[in-house]
Simulated scan of single mutants.
Amino acid sequence: MNSTIKLKELLSSLLLRMRELDITRRQLLMGLTLTFLLVVFGFVVLNSGPLASTKVTTIKVSDQSLAPTLFGVGTIEARRSYLMGPVVAGRVLNVYVDVGNSVKEGQLLAEMDSIDLSQKMVAAQAQVTDARARLLLASETHKRYEELGKKNFISPIAVDGKLQELNSAKAIVQKTTADLDGLKQQELNIKLRAPVDGIITSRDAEPGSTVIAGQAVLKLIDPTSLWIKTRFDQGKSMGLAVGLDANVILRSNPHYPISGKVVRVEMLSDSVAEERIAQIEMIDMPKTVSIGEMAEVTLQLASSEYGLSLPNASIKKRGDETGVWVLKDGKPYFARVQIGQNGLNGQVVILSGLKSGDEVVLYSDAEIKEGQRIKVVDSLLKKSP
């Protein structure tokens, strides 16, 4: 009986202890689970959240020779163009050509209405004929009076009077002849002729239209005089000069570069856009080019001496400041630099602000702030398996 009671008490004690042990394991399991979740959360926050380190690739500043280039954008224009219009106000009678037509030097392009010009020319010719007849009569009369004066049959005053009549007749002939020549020139002016071989690019007036003196009826260009009016950044234009070789990419044919040469550097720059203007002549110009077509121009400047250089991708803008992110003790700090010319290989000359061996941020996967945590990696792109 006593042994049975003791066995019951032992079993009860054992069950109680097992319950207590089970509660402790549950708490321990929950604690371990919570700790694991906190560790995972912290790892995620520090590697992909706002507190994560910014991944960057870096490059060291080095000395190297640079083949600098100058890049600009331009439009194709005609060096020689002609505005064809009347020298006096009038009405357009006929226009014989249209836009795109090729014309030859001296070809009749358009004609103005002469109105009463033909009647004026008839009247002016009659006045010239009458003036020449009067001059002939005055000349014969003066000769006769001169002979009579030498024989003292008439007074010297009478001889001088006939000489004055002769001079007046000569003046009238000169005046009427000049008037007739002026009308003949007007007759030529009403006929608009091509000054050179060219192409019509604009037709600005139709028959029946009234135009004023100097107003263009047609526009003509010389197709052999095409060049590219190109704009270059003033801050990078040092070395721009006549004679530099150019590489031209036309918008209509981007896969076939064209050789060119700088034939003029304009003295007048664009002060608003801060650009210098140069004219580029194309060598072996294609026949398909059009006026106003865009072109990208790259000039090859003289090779520079050895100096500090960096990839252009490392140059950053912070407000009005130009600089790079330099690593010091593993932290990025913005360093202002002065840059020079660009090279064909994407390098840019560093004139001041850095020294050889400085480690500079090349690329980053997010915007960098001064002193923030970063992680230097070999590449920002994930390697494919």
Rank of each mutant, 00 (worst) to 15 (best):
D116G: 05
R144F: 03
A123Y: 07
L117N: 03
A126C: 02
S139E: 13
R132D: 08
K150C: 04
R134W: 04
R132A: 08
V122C: 00
A126Q: 05
P156V: 04
E146V: 00
R132I: 05
D116K: 02
K143S: 13
K150N: 06
L136R: 07
E147C: 01
L137A: 13
Q119M: 08
A124H: 00
K143D: 13
A138N: 02
Q125W: 02
V122N: 05
L136Q: 10
L135G: 04
S139D: 13
D130S: 15
Q127T: 07
K120V: 03
T141N: 14
L137T: 11
V122P: 00
K151S: 15
T141C: 01
Y145S: 08
I154C: 09
A126R: 01
E140T: 08
D116I: 03
T129S: 10
Q125H: 11
F153K: 09
A124G: 01
T129N: 07
Q127P: 00
M121L: 08
L135Q: 12
S118Y: 11
M121I: 09
F153I: 15
V122M: 05
L135P: 02
H142N: 09
K151Q: 15
V128R: 04
G149D: 10
S118M: 12
Y145L: 11
E147Q: 15
Q127Y: 00
A124E: 01
H142A: 10
L136N: 11
S155H: 11
L117K: 01
R144S: 12
R134H: 12
E140Q: 12
A123D: 11
S139P: 00
N152C: 11
L148V: 01
D130E: 12
G149S: 14
A133Q: 10
M121Q: 07
A124S: 08
V128N: 08
A131Q: 03
R144N: 09
L117F: 04
Q125Y: 06
Y145V: 03
H142R: 09
L135W: 06
K120L: 12
M121V: 05
D116A: 04
F153H: 10
E146N: 08
P156L: 03
E147Y: 04
K151N: 14
R144Y: 05
Y145E: 13
H142L: 03
T141R: 09
E140Y: 02
L135S: 12
L136H: 06
S139Q: 15
A133C: 01
A124V: 00
E140V: 04
V122S: 02
Q119W: 04
A133F: 09
R134C: 04
P156R: 04
T129G: 01
A124C: 00
K143C: 03
K150A: 15
H142K: 10
E146F: 05
K151W: 11
L136F: 05
S155I: 03
A126L: 07
Q127H: 09
A123I: 06
A133L: 14
R144E: 12
Q125C: 03
T141P: 02
K120A: 10
R132C: 02
S155C: 05
A138Q: 09
T129F: 06
L117D: 05
K150F: 02
K120Q: 15
F153C: 11
K151L: 12
